[in-house]
Design a protein around this nucleic acid. Sequence first.
RNA 1: GCGGCUAUAGUUUAAUGGUAAAACCUCUGCCUUCCAAGCAGGUGUCGUCGGUUCGAUUCCGACUAGCCGCUCCA
Length: 530
Amino acid sequence: MSNAAEPANIMEAIVSLAKRRGFIYPSSEIYGGLNGFFDYGPLGAELKKNIRDCWWNDMVRRRDDIVGLESSIIMHPKVWEASGHVAGFTDPLVDCKVSKQRYRADQLFFAPVYIAQFALGRGSVGEASPPPSGFTWSNSPIFYVSALETENVEETLKEAAREHKRKKSIPGEFRLGGIRDMTEAKPEEIELIPSPATGEPGSLTEPRSFNMMFQTNVGAMTDASSVAYLRPETAQGMFVDFKNVVDTTRVKLPFGIAQIGKSFRNEITPRNFIFRSREFEQMEMEYFIHEDADWARCHEEWIAWCENWLKSIGLPASHLSRYTHPKEKLAFYSKGTVDIMFKYPFGVQELWGIAARGNYDLTQHATASGKPQELFDETSKKKFVPHVIEPAVGVDRILLAVLCAGYAVEDVTDEKGNVEKRTVLRFSPRIAPVKVAVLPLLKNKEQLTNRAKALHAKLQKRYAVQYDDGGAIGKRYRRQDEAGTPWCVTIDFETIEQPGDTFTLRERDTMAQRRITESELFSLLDEHVY
RNA sequence: GCGGCUAUAGUUUAAUGGUAAAACCUCUGCCUUCCAAGCAGGUGUCGUCGGUUCGAUUCCGACUAGCCGCUCCA
């Protein structure tokens, strides 16, 4: 059961297998591909659908307190203003071309420096304190200084100015012009501002803003009034439709609204296969609770629920861990966020975020829309805005996790003692793209193929199954191993010659074989596929 | 967006300034009584565009995509 693949190459092997077996293709490949986008092939589409269905069934259908929703991908642009995405998604960045350092423009401060000189010119500049008698300030800045955001930016900048004066032997008093950050720099100033890394000007780029929301235009006109965004998260749909759900579905606190759907983020660096892509699918649920409810307990319950759900689709507990966001890094409205982490081959990464968001979102939308988002408390006779616990997970990240966790290359020793490699994807039967493969032992015996086709047709009504009569039986077993099919049933001579109508059931993980009847097979599937 | 490395069949890899090879996979046929058997066939515009050259898959440049490191990840 050893994992023969080198850890360093394991992602490469998984990407290669995913392509070869039809799980995942690069998007638009015949045109050279498109960075950050992927297509799901026949097996990938089944796998992904199964993950969605498991989640939807467990989260919505098998609970009495959660209802489903499908909101539109393009929503009113004001939704994203209220949610903070229009402002908060813009992170202008500045690069230093020499040191290759990158800074957030709003965290990189600069100031022009003026030097006292004899009063030869036409008066002082700016709003500075009066110059010493007999001197006036230089008309234009002699040089610029810069500093990263610290507790005392002004002092740091002054220190930098003193240092520069000393190095360049510039005499006289100095004063700083207004301190600004790089987002406020004029184009002609960029060249003059020194890089914090080198201390020399000329290497900084203009601030470039990376708003991660994809923009489009709605309607025939392409102007400012038609701008709309592809949603960067599905959550806002649940908040915006909160009152609709409350008014039309008889839900009572605590209750949740769940949604599965595509979201879009123009990521600067898509990386790690489908882990961070620009078009991805989210499964989010907003669980609304009373403002006086014990949110911390509810939060913990949802974290545990999510962990158990991940285990139920076959992710090993050994690969799961928790990361609690430090208080000081939380958004001001957040009471706490815990990420369930997964040990991917490329590192331990965020899989499922469970955030206690207070009533921030509903309050924002109430303010922005002018429509109160309140419920009435019959006990206290007061209106209140519910708080929310939000478990948010990416389908694609789960799919990658089950691919990585299930992938194994084993050494198999045959009867003659030869060691061969067996590649297998150990998907849980719940999510496996193919539940069972139906194989006639031999292709050229009609009795076998007829019985096999009949069984296949019967299974096909309820389950994703495959019929395969190509090549030797061993090869077909291995082919199903690579597709992650948990069981194969082989129609052999015992099936048609012995009483009992039994088949060979071959298990993927152990390669063990046993006899099984048709009704036993259906019971087996019924037990494990739900 | 920056730096380094890379791009040959579906996959993994060769060779070569004179238009390419192997294995595996896949498909068709034959054969095959339980773990990638065998035989016979089929499937390739060397990522794209341009430059140098009599001639470029090979050398150069740009672009696109991938990997690694920065950066980013509300």
